[in-house]
Structures are given as structure tokens and as C-alpha cells.
Simulated scan of single mutants.
Amino acid sequence: MVLKISNLAKRYETGADPVEVLRDVSFEMAAGDTLALEGESGSGKSTLLHLVAGLDRASAGQIEVEGVDITGFTDTQSARLRRESVGLIFQQFNLIPSLNVQSNIAFHARLSGRYDPHWADELTDKIGLRDHLNKYPEALSGGQQQRVAIARALAARSKLLLADEPTGNLDETTADAVLALMLESAAQTHTAILMVTHSTRQAARMRRRLTLSRGTILAEPPSV
């Protein structure tokens, strides 16, 4: 099991009345599984991704990545988790401004010791970045920066890929092509993908779908 979440809860202490963002969330993902996380704004989707990535701490419950309980990880342990096991695609892109596109794509893979120049080259072509390799992030459009962030995450071949609206800044045709590449990569490398999306069209292409509502998961529909 790549990811196992058990009775997860997250509360923010904001004075007399704590804000409960997540409560009693439980689900599992196996290697190669693809899961769309849907729900209205404020339902806790991004918070859940941040907890799994070790960017925030749970108030209760347990998160296991590849059989290891990460719930009580220190910041150093969480950073190692993101370097070695978990890939991230967030809406902020988080590209390194001092590195060009080619170096940004290779960055995470080199840190994890899994850099494969042939795989990175293949990703560059498939995601449409061949003509931008020597450019720096400031010279790219938002959609181009998003593609670099996606290529960087895929290049590392992590066991678990967390994606928060990964195609939100792309036109429909490019979004379809990028999601197809993500799913193809997951199949090749047995990577599990947990993707937050507001697009029912994109969600329908994932193997499974979960809906968060007011911090809890609604009944999971049968797998397709």
C-alpha cells in the first residue's frame, strides 16, 4: 500500500472556536492507483494534500506512506519524504528562479538520485517544452510554468504524486495531453496519483473518485 489514511482530522485553533477542516478521513491507495479528490472550495482538499506531503501536521489520525507512519515526522524527516517518496504539483509552481527549464525539470530527480536523462528528454518532448529549455521561469507564461512543474514531478518517478489542480492553468487541449502523460507515467512507473480537481471531465479519467464535503468523505462510488 503506497498511501493509507486512517481517521485523519485537522483543526485550526483560532480563538474560542476551533475551525475543523478535516474529520475522520480514511482511504487507501495502492501502487499505480489514480484517485481524483473532488469537492467544493473550502472542503479541505488542499489541506489533505499538505498533510500527506508533510507540509502541515494532523490534529488526529494517521498517515502511512509506503508502510511508514509519517504523522509525527519532524520537518527534516518530512523534507526527506518529499525528496525520496512523494512528488508535488501545486498551483504555485514553486520553480527555482535561478535555474532554467532544463535544470528545473531535473532538480527533484537529481535530489532523489533517480535522474534519468532519457526519461527527462522524453518528458520534455511530450509536454511541449523542447523550445523553452534554456529559458528561466520569469520568461514563461503561467501555463508554461505549470508544464515545467508537472515535468519536474514526473521526472523523479516518485511512488506517490500529489497534484493540486495540475491542469488548472492550461487550455483544454493541453490539459488533456498533460493528464494523459501523467496517467501514462503512473502506469509505467507504478506511481500512485492523488489529484485535487474541480473538473468532472478530468476526474472521470482517474481510476477512482472521492468527494470531500465539509471535511468528510462522502460514500466512495464503485471503482471503474
Rank of each mutant, 00 (worst) to 15 (best):
L154T: 08
P137M: 11
R110C: 03
E84M: 13
P97F: 11
I105W: 01
K135F: 01
Q91L: 11
E64Y: 04
R157K: 15
D121A: 13
S103Q: 15
I96N: 04
G142S: 01
R114Y: 05
Q77L: 13
E66K: 11
R130H: 12
R80S: 01
Y136E: 08
A79Y: 02
Q92R: 13
V148P: 11
T71I: 07
S141N: 08
T74I: 08
R114K: 14
R80V: 10
G67C: 00
L81V: 02
I96W: 15
A139T: 05
W119L: 06
Y136H: 11
D116C: 00
H132T: 05
I96K: 10
R82G: 02
N94Q: 09
N134H: 04
G143F: 06
F90G: 08
R130T: 09
V101M: 06
L154I: 05
S103V: 03
T71C: 12
R157G: 08
L111I: 14
V101A: 02
D69Q: 14
T124Y: 00
S112N: 09
D69C: 11
D125N: 12
I70P: 00
H132K: 14
Q144R: 06
L99D: 03
I96E: 09
D116N: 14
L129F: 00
A149F: 11
F107M: 10
D131K: 15
I96Y: 13
A156G: 10
R83T: 06
R110Q: 14
T124R: 05
L88D: 04
A109F: 00
L154K: 14
R157M: 01
I89V: 15
G87D: 09
E122V: 01
Q144L: 07
L140V: 10
I127E: 06
H132I: 03
R157E: 10
N100C: 04
I63K: 06
K126V: 13
L140F: 07
L140G: 08
I63W: 08
I150H: 11
R152H: 03
I70T: 00
F107G: 01
F107R: 01
V86M: 00
S158F: 08
S141A: 08
H132P: 00
L111T: 01
T76R: 12
G72Q: 07
S141D: 04
I96T: 11
S85W: 07
E64K: 08
S98M: 10
V68W: 12
F90M: 02
V65Q: 05
Q144F: 02
E138R: 13
F90E: 05
K126C: 12
P117I: 04
T124S: 12
H118F: 00
D121E: 14
I150N: 06
A153I: 07
A149T: 07
Q77R: 07
G142P: 00
H132N: 06
A106L: 06
